[in-house]
């Protein structure tokens, strides 16, 4: 379970786009994990189980639901701003990547995060999001097409950008 809570917080901020909501989500997730510890299956991944709880909290909590309804999800500019806040020297290249992920629809964004950033398998991501593997793959295909198109120039700019990082 290395780096579990930072990873959960990253998932929370990518979902919500807001630090205060991300903080609440992580704390609620830990509390739920304690309350539901009898439901944890030995031999399975604790990080995946807690990610499942976090996603469930995000989708079901009243406050989260209100935020979702008001379209205050992670906007590209917000995520990029957070990146700059965390590290003022975050390169334009990184900001562009973060911004493009932020512009993905939530379903694609959460799937990209779980598979390509957190490293879950399709099956694990499907269990966390409570969707079939085929849906995971469809979301990834759609997200890949958008990211590949939008980040095509970014790849070429990477060598230049690294000198400004």
């Amino acid at each position: 379970m290395p780096r579990l809570l930072p990873r959960l917080w990253r998932l929370a901020i990518v979902l919500s786009g807001r630090r205060d909501v991300a903080d609440d989500l992580v704390q609620t997730t830990v509390r739920r994990a304690i309350e539901r510890r009898g439901q944890f299956t030995e031999g399975t991944r604790l990080d995946a189980w807690m990610s499942t709880i976090l996603v469930s909290v995000w989708k079901n909590e009243k406050r989260a639901a209100a935020l979702r309804a008001h379209a205050t999800l992670a906007e590209a500019s917000e995520l990029s701003a957070h990146a700059a806040e965390f590290d003022p020297e975050t390169s334009l290249f990184r900001k562009q990547i973060i911004g493009e992920v932020g512009r993905l629809p939530e379903a694609q964004r959460e799937t990209v995060l779980l598979v390509y950033i957190d490293g879950y398998t399709y099956a694990e991501a499907g269990r966390i999001l409570e969707i079939p593997i085929g849906t995971v793959m469809s979301r990834l295909a759609a997200a890949r097409a958008k990211l590949a198109e939008r980040l095509g120039d970014a790849d070429r700019a990477a060598a230049k950008a690294i000198n400004h990082d």
Partner: peptide
Amino acid sequence: ERLRFDEGALRDAFSGFAAAAPADTI
């Protein structure tokens, strides 16, 4: 090719988010 992008760059871009998770939250 239309589906290909640099997953490593994606991971690197988001690495700062986990590293910057606030201490007060933990």
